[in-house]
């Protein structure tokens, strides 16, 4: 069982978290063409790399965003939610 070391809640086993997928900024729905929108909905940056991802800690009910290297599975840093917020 992998451990996620979170500055707020300490080292917790990964089984306490639900994976919330990569952080992705939505294009403006009114401005995106059908194709651009479909690309946003379905396409992913599937190549390995350092990605910002949502992780929900179930026991505390808190969402975190971590940077993780999807090649090595290393958690690199906790990301401030403000960094991933966007307005519609």
């Amino acid at each position: 069982m992998k451990v996620i070391d979170c500055p707020h809640i300490g080292k917790r086993p990964m089984s306490e978290f639900v994976y919330g997928h990569e952080v992705r900024e939505m294009p403006k729905p009114s401005e995106a063409s059908d194709k651009e929108w479909a690309d946003y909905v379905f396409s992913r940056d599937g190549a390995p790399g350092v990605k910002k991802e949502w992780w929900h800690h179930v026991p505390s009910g808190i969402w975190f965003v971590f940077e993780r290297d999807t090649l090595t599975d290393k958690f690199i840093r906790l990301v401030d939610i403000a960094e991933v917020q966007y307005e519609l």
């Binding site: 396409s43 992913r44 599937g46």
Partner: peptide, 9 residues
């Protein structure tokens, strides 16, 4: 080749 797909690993 700069091609994005829905594939995730």
């Amino acid at each position: 080749v700069g091609l994005k797909t829905p594939i995730e690993i």
